[in-house]
Design a binder for these strands. Structure first.
Lengths: 123, 123
DNA sequence: TCCCTAGTTCAATGTTTATTGAACTATCAA
DNA sequence: TTGATAGTTCAATAAACATTGAACTAGGGA
């Protein structure tokens, strides 16, 4: 278990990989939940997503989200804290993340996304 | 060969399918080229994309783009004319298509997209 | 020290995907 | 009716993908 997983640099973030990453319902739900959480604190632990799938499957999706540059993982003890790479994404693809997030919000029911009041306070 | 292929209704257009469709470099190039063409005429023939891949592979990608609601195919003689479903997409996911298109434009070189001056005049 | 918790890694599985070429359908023009 | 053109459909293939459970690693607390 290496100390900090590899992340692509801002310039290495590629549009097709980002779109592909966001096209999976579980990963979209993770990104959506991270975005909701930004209003309270910027980070969430892996365990906060346990409702979405099993541990090992989530680890697989977390890795994908890291590799494509959508989120960043910080190791602290036995926990991993993750947050959206908002600034990098905005610099590379202005308006894209917000367009996807508001599109997802419109279909929150259909996509079975966490509702606003489900956001963990003080996470 | 049925007269007019099936297209989803506006309400049937799903975000994950749209993002997945746009995540393939060939399909992104098709959509980008259709968007460029909108300034001149709204439609292009299948053959206008022959530079991107072989005929049967293109037909496969065209079907995907139709099925996810990104474009519309109209049959006229031996030709099929295709255009973006701009209004439907804007209604379902406001700002999404333009955000993807401008992101793609920023990376046009990297994505090997057709440049503006390559657009077929009066197609 | 021992165990619990948090999360990753690995191997196996079945599914979906992109790509190719060949066969096919349909329209148009000579 | 013959031939050319435009595009789809089919079958086959190899690669990528999502999912599962078991094994593993590391940190923190009793």
């Amino acid at each position: 278990m290496s100390r900090t997983p590899l992340h692509p640099t801002r310039e290495q973030i590629e549009l097709p990989m980002v779109l592909d990453c966001l096209s999976d319902p579980i990963r979209l739900a993770i990104v959506y939940q991270l975005a909701q959480q930004e209003r309270v604190s910027s980070e969430l632990r892996c365990g906060d997503f346990n409702g979405l799938s099993g541990k090992s499957n989530l680890a697989y999706h977390f890795a994908k989200l890291r590799e494509c540059g959508l989120m960043l993982t910080r190791v602290a003890g036995t926990n991993r804290f993750m947050r959206l790479r908002r600034e990098d994404l905005e610099a590379r693809f202005p308006g894209l993340l917000d367009a996807v997030l508001s599109s997802a919000a419109k279909d929150a029911d259909r996509l079975q996304l966490v509702s606003e009041c489900d956001v963990v306070e003080g996470g």
